[in-house]
Each structure stands twice: as C-alpha cells, then as structure tokens.
Design a protein around this nucleic acid. Structure first.
Length: 470
DNA sequence: TTTTGAGTTGTTCGA
DNA sequence: GTCGAACAACTCAAA
C-alpha cells in the first residue's frame, strides 16, 4: 500500500525552508498539499479585508509553484477538523504534517486535531516554520516567561540554534486520483463591490519569489542605512517584509541566514535582527498570555477612563484629524494596506492618548486594513503604545504629531505624498497647516488641541496611579 | 538575599 | 539655541 501524506498549509505559504513539506517529502509517498479556509474558527479575529486580498494572491502563487512540482494545492472550506477528516478518508492518508501557528484559537484547534488523529493511529507532526525560537523554550531565571524585551532577546540569541534553511523540493509525488478542490475565486477573498484593492495591487506582489526579491533588495540597497533610515516615513529604508513574514512566504531563518552571508555592518544587521526579535517577543507574549488581543496585559488598566467617541474614531480612520503626519499614515494604510512603523506609533499614540479612544478600537481597524495584520504583533504593539502592555511605553511618552513630523519628515515629502491638499503648503507650515496665513481650505482643522489632549491624557493616566495607590 | 541599575522608538520646562 | 531634569512603576539580572 503506497503511503500518502497530507501537508496542511496555513501561514507557511512557501516551498523553500518548509519543515512540514520537507518531512512529508522524506516519507517518500504521495503528497496532498491542502489549504483549508476555516474562517469561522477565528471568531473576532477572522481575516480582515486586506488579509483576505493577500491570502488570495499568495494561495494562487503557491498553487502555481506546487503545480510545477507536480502536486496541485487542494482548496477546501469549513471547520479544519472536519475537512481534514474528509480528506484523510478520501485519500487513506497515514500522516498529516503542518507548521505551527500561535494564535490562541489555532493552538487549541490544532491540539485537539493532533490528539484526535493520533488516537486513530495517524502519524501527526507539527513543526516550527515561523519562529526562531518556540515560545515554550525560553524562560527567565525564576522560571517564568519574559516580560521585558532586552533580557528576552539576550536569552534567545544566547541559546539560539538556527536551522539552515531547507531546500525547495524539486519534485513532489502527487496523489494518483483526482481530488475535489474548491475554485479559489469562489471563495470571494477579493473585494468586488467596490474594488478597493487598486492601491494594494500597485504596492504588493504576494508570494515566495517576491518575498526573496524584497529581502535581497533590502540587503543590497537599504540595510546599510537601516539604523537611522528606518525612521524615515517614506519607507526608503524599510524592508517591506512584514506581510511576507506574516504569511510565511519567507521564514525568519531564511532572513537570518541571508544576513549572515551578506556583506553588511554588524551593527545594521543586529538592528534588523532585533526587529525580528520584537516579532519573536510578540509571539512569546501571545502564547503565554493568550488574552492580549482583547484584554489589558496590565490589569490595572481595566479602570482606564477611555472616552469612546464614534466621530473621533472615524476621523482618525479616514485620515481627517487635521494633523498631517497622522492623516498621511492613515491614508497610506487605507490605500496600500501598510503603514511605516514610526507612523504606526505616532497614529496609535494619537488615537489612544490625544483622543482617549480604547486601544482595542485602533487594533481592530489595523486588523482589518493591514496586509501584514498579525495577531501577535498587532496586539502586543497596541498594548505597548497604550502603556498597558509588556515593557510598555511610559505613560508620559505622548508623541507630538507636529514635532514628530518635523523631525522625521522635515521636507514634508511624506505628508504631501498622501495628502494632496497640502501640495502647495510650504515646508515651514506643512506639519501645522492651520497656522499658515494661507491655510488650505479643503484640509480639516485639528480635531483636538495638542496641549489640551496631552493634559487630558496625563490626567487620565493619573487616575490609574491614584486608584492603584490604595 | 538584597540591592542596584538599566530598560526601542518622547516632550516640556526652565536654566 | 542647547541642555538636563522631571515625568512611574515594574521586570530582570548582575553585583
């Protein structure tokens, strides 16, 4: 009886350095590559609009690559346990392999599936395909998960053994009978009415090959300026790898290995590696504190006096706050599905501190609009900005959007790129256009006074302090 | 065991 | 214009 292995693809949409795929290949039998759209299982955190767009294209590229290797991707939809069960029956598969995910719902779902299928005698194995370090592998000297980045990253890098990236298979033995597969287009992952994805198409090409291309572009032309250049909002020195990393079109091991063999300054390479470290840290936090997508990691923030306001939230979402660096970022996000890291911090700080909106509202908006929406990174970062997270920004760190704009976008290039209303405003006023003698009429006036907003935020944080003294 | 110092990304104020 | 201090509380690890 010939062996058949199912390789369940999830957030590892690549052929090279794919441990589950390589393990199945080593079995020597037929391979059934499977993707399951299990959209209801994620609950609140079902795929956002931009993520769905990315997923469609990434799957299409992956399927093309698998076809070239001889084994097309099988598309199915429904609860993962049920679908797997069906495919096992149809193919008489004896093994199921996948690379691990770390979202709480995925962890519990996968655990249940693994235990159920193992009981039935199948060979079920999961692999590390997404992280440099598994979250359960590291703890501080009191035996607890780290809560501070620097000691965490020091401990990880000291103990790290990074696997050499695995090769892309040259051929896969397909299952010998045809299998039912959904039509990817029938999943309607792409927006139609209206088709808002034009800006995404201009900006991104999902898929493994493009991810590697981005990596080498970054290493050849950008990383030499990374330490300072990473703060420039136009993105000239950023890697643009985040969505590729989220969907596993490239692995951190592949990035690490490329950095180590490239001719780059150790300081630049270390700086970029530490950004991978923050990604690791976020996953570490989410794994050990699975409630962080919804609840404050520091529980004393449960008493924080947010003032939810639909109109303010909406102005922020649409890039109409009257503060150019904030609005440019929010419009860049809306148009391209991505926002520069520094601008993410500025816009998030503005929403949470100047506007006193709950960080969860911001996190949900980012979740829906980012092509790199990632539950670990998104949750941990919003909590970091709000001050309720691990190793959080101090309460008094309130970004002033005018100063931040003048510091990191001194010529106004970035804000003019996204806010046509500011095209003719001279550099002197471009980050505070309301002070200009010829303030543009079609650009909104500030929705909050910066000094007042700052004082209100400080007062709100002071109530927490007072409440916790008791 | 206890103490001490350091810790991604800032702003304002007063000298 | 520049500079240092002040703006908490907590985690972690080294001393």
């Amino acid at each position: 009886m010939p062996k058949t292995s199912i390789v369940w693809f999830r957030q590892d949409l690549r052929l090279a350095d794919n441990p589950a795929l390589s393990a199945a290949l080593a079995e020597g039998g037929s391979i059934v590559p499977l993707f399951i759209l299990d959209d209801d299982g994620a609950g609140l955190w079902r795929l956002g609009g931009a993520s769905r767009w990315w997923l469609h294209h990434s799957l299409s590229v992956l399927n093309q690559g698998l076809n070239e290797l001889g084994a097309p991707l099988i598309f199915r939809r429904g609860p993962a346990a049920h679908v797997l069960d069906q495919v096992i029956k149809e193919t008489a598969a004896t093994s199921v392999y996948w690379n691990r995910c770390y979202e709480p719902f995925a962890v519990s779902r996968d655990k249940a599936i693994k235990s159920e299928l193992s009981t039935r005698g199948l060979d079920v194995q999961s692999f590390n395909g997404a992280l440099l370090n598994e979250p359960w592998n590291i703890q501080n000297k009191s035996g607890k998960p780290f809560r501070v980045f620097t000691p965490f990253w020091r401990a990880v890098t000291n103990s790290l053994e990074i696997r050499n990236p695995l090769p892309k298979p040259s051929r896969l033995k397909p299952y010998d009978k045809p299998l039912l597969s959904d039509d990817l287009n029938g999943w309607h992952l792409l927006p139609t009415k209206p088709d808002w994805a034009g800006g995404l198409r201009e900006t991104w090409q999902p898929g493994e090959e493009r991810a590697r291309h981005r990596l080498f572009q970054f290493i050849d032309h950008k990383i030499g300026h990374y330490a300072q250049g990473r703060d420039i909002p136009s993105g000239a020195y950023t890697s643009y790898l985040s969505p590729h990393l989220h969907w596993g079109e490239i692995s951190p091991q592949q990035i690490w290995a490329s950095l180590d063999t490239a001719d780059v300054h150790a300081s630049d390479s270390a700086k970029f590696k530490s950004e991978l470290g923050w990604r690791e840290f976020s996953h570490h936090l989410l794994f050990h504190e699975p409630t962080i997508p919804e609840g404050n990691l520091r529980r004393e923030f449960d008493a924080f006096p947010w003032v939810p306001d639909e109109a303010l939230l909406r102005a922020w979402q649409r890039g109409k706050t009257g503060y150019p660096i904030v609005d440019a970022g929010m419009r860049e996000l809306w148009h391209t599905g991505w926002m520069h890291n520094r601008v993410r911090m500025i816009t998030a700080s503005f929403l949470v501190k100047h506007l006193l909106q709950p960080w969860q509202d911001g996190a949900r908006w980012f979740w829906d609009t980012l092509v790199d929406a990632d539950l670990a990174n998104n949750s941990a970062s919003w909590q970091w900005v709000a001050g309720c997270g691990a190793d959080a920004a101090p309460y008094f760190r309130i970004f002033n959007p005018v100063l931040q704009g003048e510091k990191f976008d001194p010529d106004g290039t970035y804000v003019r790129q996204w806010i046509p209303e500011l095209e003719t405003v001279p550099k002197k006023w471009v980050h505070k256009p309301w002070t200009s003698p010829e303030a543009p009429k079609d650009y909104p006036r500030p929705i909050v006074d910066l000094a007042e907003g700052r004082q209100r935020a400080l007062a709100a944080y002071a109530t927490l302090k007072a409440a916790n003294v008791k």
